[in-house]
């Protein structure tokens, strides 16, 4: 067993867990933050994406112990109180989700993409950057549209809409 302490969505947490505990299981089962999902076991689908010290990572592919001392943000911590993050709002407005299972990972990845690319974001870049996130429902069309719209909203600029 190992004691892990980290900041999750701005809250300091500390728990004793098995050394083999994955970060995603720590979030879902030890902290009850079930918005982060598990869709595969080979690190490809991206349903488990969270931000670790501000960067998008796959929480299924690291141990909780590796995140000891880090700051983690999950989908539950993205909105500012009752106010949705612009990306959350854009996913709703542009119908960027259907079954909702990949959505938390998509939104966390989308936020990371916007943070890294800012005003350089265009449709081709968004599509390439979504390499690590699989959606089976939407054909990505409206996800791409939502990320571009949110980038525009957030002042990142929007060179080209996904129409």
């Amino acid at each position: 067993m190992v004691t892990v302490s980290m900041t999750v969505n701005g809250r300091q947490v500390s728990k004793e867990v098995e050394d083999r505990r994955l970060l995603v299981d720590f979030l879902r089962e030890d902290l009850g933050l079930t918005g982060t999902h598990v869709g595969c076991d080979t690190s490809q689908c991206g349903a488990c994406v969270v931000h670790l010290d501000g960067k998008a990572v796959k929480s299924c592919t690291m141990l909780a112990a590796q995140a000891d001392g880090a700051s983690v943000k999950t989908i539950e911590g993205l909105a500012d109180g009752a106010e949705l993050h612009p990306l959350q709002a854009a996913f709703k407005e542009h119908h960027g989700l259907q079954c909702g299972f990949c959505t938390p990972g998509m939104i966390m990845s989308g936020a990371d993409i916007i943070a890294r690319h800012g005003s350089d974001l265009d449709e081709a870049t968004v599509r390439l950057e979504l390499e690590g996130n699989i959606c089976r429902c939407t054909g990505y069309h409206n996800i791409v549209k939502a990320i571009l719209a949110a980038a525009g909203e957030m002042g990142g600029g929007m060179k080209q809409a996904a129409e």
Partner: peptide
């Protein structure tokens, strides 16, 4: 119309069986 069910999914509050 934007979907009524979206809010729970975009905020991580969906309730799937494994949750």
């Amino acid at each position: 119309v934007a979907r009524k069910e979206d809010k729970r999914f975009i905020t991580g509050q969906g309730r799937y069986v494994d949750d």
